[in-house]
Each structure stands twice: as C-alpha cells, then as structure tokens.
C-alpha cells in the first residue's frame, strides 16, 4: 500500500483547545497529531491520510499581524512536510475565516500542495480568498461541524489524489473559474429547453448564475426639496483634469472627493473621465453628460433644491469588485451623513 497522505491541520485558539477570547492573542504553536475537531477529520480521512501535526494560532494575533502570522504559521506547517493542509472550518467567524483563508492561500502558493478550508458563505474570508482556494460551504456556527467535516475531508482527499472536482458535487464555494466542456445539445437547444421548463413552472438550473446581491429597503422620500441638501456621486469616473488621485480606469482601488465651490459647469478643460470600458470621448467633451453639475447649479439658484452639496464623490465602476464598491460607498455615505446631505443622485455609465 502507498504511504498515507500527510496532513497538517490549522486551528484557532478555541478549536485548538487553548482557550477562549482571552487567549486570542496567542502566537502560533504546533502540536504533533490531531487536536479537537482534528479527531473527526482523522476518522473521516480513514486509512488514506493522517493528521501528522496541528498548528494553532490566536485569532486576534493573526488578524492584527496577518503578514507575520501567516509566515510564522507557514514555518510551523513546513516542519511536518505535509502533502495536504486543512484549516478550520471557521463557520462565520470573521477573523478565524480570514486566518484560515490566508494560511491556505500561503500554503498553496509557497508549498504548492492542496488546501481545503470551510466557511459560511458570508464569512469575509470567503470574498478574500475564494478565488485562490477551495472553501467548503458550512453552516454559520460550530453546530454544523458534523456536516462540514466529511465534506471537507472528501474534497481534501480528491485534491490530494489529483482527482477532478466540481463545486456543485463537492460542496465548495465557486471560485469564479469556468471550465470548458462539450455539451450534448448546443446552447440554443438548451436555452429553449430551459425556457419551456420555466414557462411550465418547472424547475430549471441556469448555466450562468448571477452573483448574489443583498437588498436594502428604500428610505423615506424627501419632504421639502427646496430645503434639502443634495449631493452628486458617480461611478462614471468624472475627475478633475489630470486625474489628480490617479483613480484607475478599471478595478479602481480608491474613490475621490472633489470640491465644486465656484464651479457652474464642468468643461473639457476642467474635468475628464478616468473610466475605462466605455468610449470616453463624450464624457471628456462635456463631463456634465455624466455628472450634471450645470443643471444642479441652476436648480440650486432657482431654489428648486435647498443646497447643492459642495463636494462630489467619484470612482470608476469598471471591473471594481462589489466588496470594494461597497467599502468606498460606505465611507462616502458616512461623510455625506456627517455633512447632513438629505438626498443623493448617483450616476453610472
């Protein structure tokens, strides 16, 4: 029989049985063999693989020193010469999930061996690392341990043996990788079949699932527009000429806040678009076509709106991740609330 697959298991201080939140500052340490949930993994991996060592680190220590901690954990993992690393599962614990993701991503990159972790889909570690590693979908709390362990173990063994995997079959969160395959029917036939099922009220499975977006309830309407302070925000990349903040034309890493004091209209000389992915000619010719400063100024002068907020905010929507857009907008919204802005017009290209 071939030798057993060597596995190292990563755990936080809690599952590593060191202690609770009071021990979350602990530096990484390792123990031979399996610890805590490692016992169930050992059972699920049966005679094919063996947990040769467990590395444990405090969640807070990891979260606050991500780079150093990743390196320290990696050094401890390497000692055991593993063929495979399993981390967590972290369920919906944010710091733990980020740590599991970071450890797995580092192992995959540096040691070039398969890694598996498990998280609840909304764990922030998912968005941070799903593209890099296999993350098995788990319940939100440790109550889901019993279901998570066999799924993770099964996927881990498949990966270790180089067998093909499938997110739908193996229960991991999709990694945004499309695989080409030859279908029996061509696309038009499949689409019509799907449509017929849909019209017939039957179940159908899309071949192109859209990402999940959450919902926010609308706020109450503005009662008196003539007293309201209105601000402009745009994802269309309108920036002062020369793009002083160097906002990227795609996958923007930032947003800008710009002063409109004394500006009655935007012109080709004063502003431009930084946005890639659409023809910039029209926006550069007259940036008001994306950010209607001229009209807003008129409406303010005529008393239709109470006040046109002095600053506008801009970023580039092109290829920018939902997570980043969310982060920028949350920061923008905070400032708008502090400035007592009562309504926002957000323009997109």
């Amino acid at each position: 029989m071939t030798r057993k697959i060597r596995v190292v298991h990563y755990l936080n201080q809690f599952f590593g049985q060191i202690g609770g939140e009071d021990k979350a500052g602990m530096h990484p340490m390792d123990k031979a063999g399996h610890v805590g949930p490692g016992m169930s993994f050992a059972a699920a991996l049966k005679d094919q693989a063996e947990i040769v060592g467990t590395v444990i680190c405090g969640d807070t220590y990891f979260g606050e020193n991500m780079e150093t901690a990743t390196k320290e954990v990696l050094d401890l993992i390497v000692k055991y010469e593993p063929d495979l690393v399993i981390a967590g599962p972290a369920f919906n614990a944010g710091r733990y999930g980020s740590a599991c993701g970071a450890v797995c991503a580092a192992v995959a990159e540096k040691l070039q061996i398969p890694v598996v972790t498990g998280m609840y889909p909304e764990n922030p570690g998912v968005d941070m690392f799903r593209k890099h590693i296999h993350i098995v979908e788990t319940e939100g709390s440790a109550a889901g341990m019993r279901q998570a362990v066999p799924k993770m173990a099964k996927l881990a063994l498949k990966l270790a043996k180089g067998e093909p995997t499938d997110s739908a079959v193996d229960g991991y969160l999709t990694r945004g990788i499309r695989k080409n395959y030859f279908a029996k029917e061509r696309g038009s036939a499949r689409a019509v079949e799907m449509l017929v099922r849909k019209l017939g009220g039957q179940k159908f499975v899309t071949e192109y699932p859209m990402p999940q977006f959450d919902r926010v309830d609308p706020n109450p309407a503005i009662r008196d527009m003539s007293k309201a302070r209105i601000a402009l925000v745009t994802s269309g990349g309108i920036v002062p000429k020369g793009n002083p903040d160097h906002i990227e034309s795609s996958s923007a890493s930032k947003y800008g806040k710009y002063d409109l004091e004394g500006i009655d209209a935007l012109t080709a000389a004063s502003h431009q678009t930084a946005h890639g992915g659409y023809d910039p000619v029209y926006a550069n010719e007259n940036p008001d076509r994306v950010l209607p400063v001229d009209v807003m100024r008129d409406l303010e002068r005529e008393g239709v709106i109470g006040k046109f907020h002095r600053y506008y905010y801009a970023t580039v929507g092109n290829g920018t991740s939902v997570a980043n857009a969310k982060k920028y907008a949350a920061a923008i919204a905070k400032e708008l609330v502090e400035a007592e802005v009562q309504g926002v017009i957000l323009t997109s290209t």
């Binding site: 959450d214 919902r215 926010v216 609308p218 994802s235 907008a329 923008i332 009562q342 957000l346 997109s348």
Partner: peptide, 30 residues
Amino acid sequence: MVKEIERAGIPVVHMCTVVPISLTVGANRI
C-alpha cells in the same frame, strides 16, 4: 454603491442606462 448610501439612511436615486444591472444591484429609485 447605491445600496451603501441607502443603508446609511440617505435616500438615493440611481441614474443609469443599464437598468437591469441597477435592479440586480438593488437600487430602489432608478
């Protein structure tokens, strides 16, 4: 982005050309 502004408590209107995206993203006033 619209959603985060809405979440912060400010009513927001999304002016955009590709309405289905706005609907998917979750803008309320479009």
